[in-house]
């Protein structure tokens, strides 16, 4: 009966043909790094699915946004689970993007003919982090509000397009109630669409640039690779569901623009406002810097240095052409610096 149904479908859909094609295709190995891309795709799909669920009860206006998130987290059946999965998956997504970028950097697989793979990968990183940031503002909590002020102002300090980009993200000159609509539109419309296009293009160029008989590519995609990828994805999914179940994500206090962090009438010093873990290194740098560095306001200086670093990353396929491994060493140093600063900030 089941076999008949399967045959009926495969006669019309041609699934065995697809599997045959995947059987013929090869990957170069089955080391942990081979699965990061597939896990990233799974995480993205999970974000889209849980995000669509969250869109339904969420109310994207400053009057109701916070209360609706409180209701999702506290009152809706499994609301806390869906929200937890969405939040934890976003952390996992950014972490896996970092792992992927670090692997590519150390193995120098950004070189010809993989330039487009590298660039679309970098754009995916920017898009992923932007999604995390626009999403963080949606509960319209005081902490997220202050974070949004600081992070958009940081973008505003960037060279050339900075001020314009800041205004576009904020929906004006300042973070106002209008900014919530902008964050919501970018988070649920613009950025996911962009990410989908980038994923598609990225995978297409990955296939194209590694097409043909690649030396050492001996492992069939199906069943060897796909089956293992499914197992890895299941393990990651299990981890996310466990985190979402046992480590609740706080909603925070609602935004009150006519009040800063200190309680009314003063009394205690304002509490720390911390960015997500992957920007803690930047937070610490900004906090430790003196008002001016080499005659430039330190925030501008730090952002300028980061822009140079970003430009270096983009130009990498042109810089690293010959057999020299110097850029891989620079990459390794940067990765270590990032890990040490982040570790220092957390501890």
């Amino acid at each position: 009966m089941l076999d008949d149904t399967r045959k009926w479908f495969s006669d019309r859909v041609g699934a065995p043909v697809l599997l045959e094609k995947l059987r013929e295709r090869r990957v170069s190995g089955l080391s942990p790094t081979h699965f990061v891309g597939g896990v990233l795709l799974m995480l993205f799909l999970l974000e889209v699915a849980s995000g669509i669920l969250l869109m339904l009860p969420y109310r994207p206006d400053p009057q109701h946004a916070h209360a609706s998130v409180v209701a999702i987290a506290g009152r809706l059946p499994y609301g806390s689970l869906v929200r937890g999965v969405h939040a934890w998956t976003s952390h996992m997504f950014v972490a896996m993007l970092f792992v992927q970028i670090a692997t590519v950097l150390l193995n120098r697989v950004y070189r010809e003919p993989k330039e487009l793979v590298w660039w679309t990968g970098l754009l995916l990183l920017v898009t992923g982090v932007s999604m995390a940031f626009t999403g963080a503002l949606l509960p319209w909590s005081q902490n997220a509000y202050l974070q949004a002020r600081v992070s958009s102002e940081m973008i505003g300090q960037g060279p050339i397009f900075g001020p314009w980009l800041k205004r576009m993200l904020r929906g004006g000159d300042d973070i106002t109630p209008w900014s919530l609509g902008h964050a919501y539109g970018f988070h649920t419309g613009v950025l996911p669409a962009l990410a989908t296009l980038l994923f598609g293009f990225h995978m297409a160029v990955v296939r194209r640039s590694s097409g043909g008989p690649v030396e050492g590519a001996t492992v069939p995609v199906y069943p060897e690779f796909i089956v293992r990828l499914a197992a890895v994805c299941t393990a990651v999914l299990l981890l996310i569901v466990s985190l979402a179940t046992f480590v609740p994500v706080a909603v925070g206090t609602p935004v009150n623009m006519a009040q800063s962090m200190a309680p009314a009438g003063g009394g205690t010093a304002p509490s720390d406002v911390l960015p997500p873990w992957y920007f803690l290194f930047l937070h610490d740098l900004l906090r430790a810097a003196p008002p001016r560095l080499l005659g430039v306001e330190s925030a501008k200086f730090v952002l300028g240095a980061l822009s140079v670093l970003a430009l270096f990353a983009v130009a990498l396929p042109f810089i690293d052409r010959k057999g020299s491994k110097i850029t891989a060493y620079i990459g390794a140093v940067l990765i270590v610096v990032f890990l040490v600063l982040t570790g220092h900030a957390i501890l």
Partner: peptide, 25 residues
């Protein structure tokens, strides 16, 4: 109340008799 560093919102600290920014101290 907009901090001149990165536009965080500053607050009065009655304890320290000064104005403090919660974002980067």
């Amino acid at each position: 109340a907009i901090c001149t560093h990165l536009q965080c919102v500053v607050a009065y600290s009655a304890q320290h008799r000064q104005i403090e920014c919660p974002c980067h101290k």
